[in-house]
Design a protein around this nucleic acid. Structure first.
Lengths: 109, 109
DNA sequence: CTCTATCCATAGATAATCTATATATATAGA
DNA sequence: TCTATATATATAGATTATCTATGGATAGAG
């Protein structure tokens, strides 16, 4: 019995970068945003999200700074860098290429 | 520098099941078929394919028998079972649901 | 007789995700 | 006041899938 994954493996970095392309956001906010926009189909677990953010930081695709939220709580805000924006473009086009290729395999013919 | 994957993780079983839905085929043929239909975008490595076929056999989604190919070589032909056909339907709909959800997250708005 | 394409399969490394856990605080409500 | 919930970050360990690297075997072309 294969388990239904919370998200499609390999797409998380792209989703996070895209979310940050709309403006800086803290981790928790990123998870909420993806969940909401996907209409609850995609759920980003903390154990997936924070390692992903560490990856993105290491690559300098995002930068982070501690700030206070509107609700007066400490939070780490992530901002997309120029390199991150470029990387997002690369991942988007690779993703679309893959989806198109899978679509061809799935076609009835 | 992230490497470009040969296929989208999590989609291999679906692609194999779909390929076998067109008729029985041996492993090598499955790999060739996916590569060709995807126009060389997707490459199924042996180290991914044969473990995947073992998974599918274990679940009884496919069955296998040794036969001779048209070119007079021993080959193991895989056939989709009824359960496999059902599973293909499940995986297809989950895939489409995921793709739609990702599409919503990627939308500009 | 050698090379290429066809065919099978596994071991080990790598990477990404999920589960579980830990910590901390603001605020609402009992 | 006490408690539950939502907000917020982060890591350790297990699991799983894929990729790399092998290994073996044979048909047929040149």
């Amino acid at each position: 019995m294969p388990r239904k994954p919370d998200l499609m493996p390999g797409t998380l970095d792209m989703l996070v970068l895209k979310t940050l392309a709309r403006g800086p956001l803290h981790g928790y906010g990123i998870a909420l945003s993806i969940k909401k926009l996907s209409q609850d189909v995609l759920t980003v677990e903390e154990g997936s999200l924070y390692p992903a953010l560490q990856r993105l930081l290491l690559q300098s695709w995002v930068k982070a700074e501690w700030k206070m939220t509107e609700t007066n709580r400490r939070a780490r805000y992530y901002t997309l860098t120029a390199a991150g924006r470029k990387q997002l473009g690369i991942e988007l086009s690779q993703f679309e290429q893959m989806i198109a290729a899978i679509g061809r395999v799935l076609q009835d013919a």
